[in-house]
């Protein structure tokens, strides 16, 4: 029951992070999400990942505030990306169906945490796929990283150092994204298309 509540809180935090207009709020709600994952891991007995996850939350706040927070956001929803949006919608629908099936197959009696962890992952994918602000895309990647950590712990992993790898990836991504938006003077991913053809 506690697990389910934790996951619901995490999903709420993730959805808020994706949808809020203020990136500062998004950072702290991502931190809340990370904290939730950490708490879940510690209660499930995964102490090493839980501890690493806890550290990663502070790193996350520091890094996102330093790199991406000062960048201005573009107006949302560019025209004419119907193809990718349609594909994402199909992907989302099919993924939810698949997630139900998989959760049921893994744990027939207590499938809800699995299902919720998949929903969390999909929230991340939603942000990456539907937002044109690279800050939101980075936030989506953060959600995916954290959600997959939670899923790993759910499926029985107890020893891994994957949170460490995850936070390293996020730091590097934030730095690259900040450099990129500095260089191009925009955070609109639809305007970053010098390389094509």
């Amino acid at each position: 029951m506690i697990t389910i509540i934790l996951f619901l809180i995490m999903i709420a935090a993730a959805v808020y992070a994706v949808e809020t207009g203020e990136f500062r709020n998004a950072v702290y709600s991502l931190a809340l999400l990370g904290l939730g994952v950490s708490v879940y891991q510690l209660t499930a007995g995964a102490f090493l990942p839980g501890a690493l996850q806890l550290i990663s939350v502070f790193v996350l706040i520091y890094v996102l505030n330093r790199t991406l927070l000062p960048k201005a956001s573009p107006r949302e929803f560019a025209e004419g990306e119907y193809f990718s949006r349609a594909v994402f919608l199909i992907f989302m629908i099919l993924s939810v169906i698949l997630a139900c099936g998989v959760s049921d197959a893994i744990a027939p009696n207590s499938y809800s945490p699995y299902l919720l962890s998949f929903v969390l992952i999909l929230t991340g994918f939603f942000s990456v796929a539907f937002k044109k602000d690279i800050k939101k895309i980075v936030a989506g990647i953060v959600i995916i990283e954290y959600a997959v950590e939670a899923f790993l712990t759910l499926s029985g992993e107890r020893q891994g150092i994957t949170p460490l790898i995850g936070i390293l990836a996020i730091v590097l991504l934030a730095v690259i994204a900040a450099r990129l938006s500095d260089r191009l003077g925009t955070t609109d991913v639809t305007k970053i298309r010098e390389l094509r053809g």
Binding site: I121, G124, F125, V128, I134, I137, I141, I144, E145, V148, F151, L152, T162, A169, L172, L173, I176, A177, R179, L180, R183, L184, I192, R193, E194, L195
Partner: peptide
Amino acid sequence: SQPLEASFKYFIMGEAASAFIL
């Protein structure tokens, strides 16, 4: 600008793939 753009796209897609693998 080109290396950063390429790296960013590579990164996002690479992390999505890593999530799939994980």
